[in-house]
């Protein structure tokens, strides 16, 4: 039997983590599947469980100083219903898992699970989201892209908790999201694509492009984005083949039980092309 600890507040949670190597559980939806052993059997956890889903500090959504702050234990279904959450993020969350799972699963869990197919991630990468990581002694704030280092791998230290996600509160004039799953309801992504852009005076003033499920981590290239910013919208059409060509080597998907590398690559580049053409 593993130990379980249910702290009264965040401080107590962090102090517990400082003393005991433990597994934080907010919603549990990913962990319970990863550790499942079969019907009627207990999941296979080897460290004490630290329950953090109920902590008030982690359940707030607020807008401060031009940033949206989302507590790590906010449920996916709560994101959909909250009017502070950007539509582009909601578009992704609405297609995640199913209603009974979204009533359990948290945004922090989706980030810490660090799956290449994590569906909140393309948006968070594109939106330049920051993560707040706290330990009993310290606090650091890092971009989401620096937090996730590979499939299931993050820079989270054993005494740290992801407490908050900070998204610059910026409204884009173009919001594009497409998830390609096996079916319409309840699917893991074969590929996903987020495109955000701003157009002023017929010129692209900002553009963000992120691909999910096609590399060990989410694919985003500031360099390619920078090469598009400043272009008149009228030139985009001619630039599309060049942009697609630049992205192509970054899209390095795999064959697995759900899809093929070839399809994932093709479809990702088609979605990119479609997004760009829609800007014109």
């Amino acid at each position: 039997m593993v130990e379980g600890f249910r702290p009264a507040d965040l401080q107590e949670a962090l102090e517990f983590m400082a003393k005991h190597p433990s597994i934080p559980i907010a919603g549990g939806t990913d962990l319970m599947i990863q550790k499942a052993r079969g019907f009627g059997l207990k999941p296979d956890f080897n460290k004490p469980l630290l329950f953090i889903g109920h902590l008030r500090e982690l359940r707030q959504i607020s807008v401060r100083n031009g940033n949206i702050h989302i507590g790590a234990s906010v449920l996916l279904n709560e994101l959909i219903k909250n009017d502070k959450i950007p539509e582009a993020l909601k578009m992704a969350v609405r297609q995640m898992a199913s209603p009974p799972s979204r009533n359990l699963a948290t945004i922090g869990g989706n980030i810490c699970n660090a799956s290449p197919a994590g569906d909140t991630l393309p948006y968070l990468y594109a939106a330049d989201a920051f993560l707040v990581l706290k330990s009993s002694q310290a606090e650091r704030k890092i971009p989401v892209g620096k937090f996730i280092t590979g499939p299931g791998k993050t820079t989270l230290k054993s005494d740290e908790l992801l407490t908050e996600i900070i998204i610059p509160d910026k409204v884009f004039s173009a919001n594009y999201y497409k998830k390609v799953g096996t079916r319409k309801g309840m699917s893991l992504s074969k590929a996903s694509f987020t495109g955000l852009a701003d157009i002023e005076s017929e010129k692209i003033t900002d553009i963000r492009i992120a691909f999910g499920s096609v590399a060990p981590t989410i694919v985003r290239s500031r360099e390619i984005e920078a090469s598009i910013i400043g272009k008149p919208v009228s030139e985009i059409k001619n630039a599309v083949p060049e942009i697609v060509k630049k992205f192509a080597p970054l899209i390095r998907p795999i064959d697995d039980a759900r899809s093929s590398a070839e399809y994932r690559k093709q479809v990702s580049l088609r979605l990119l092309e479609n997004f760009l053409m829609k800007l014109t």
Partner: peptide, 21 residues
């Protein structure tokens, strides 16, 4: 699926520690 605080949830995904209160 059962109801937790009135909302549908998958009981196979819920560890006991989460149902306090």
């Amino acid at each position: 699926v059962v109801l937790m605080d009135g909302k549908a949830v998958n009981s196979c995904l819920i560890p006991a520690g989460l149902i306090e209160g």
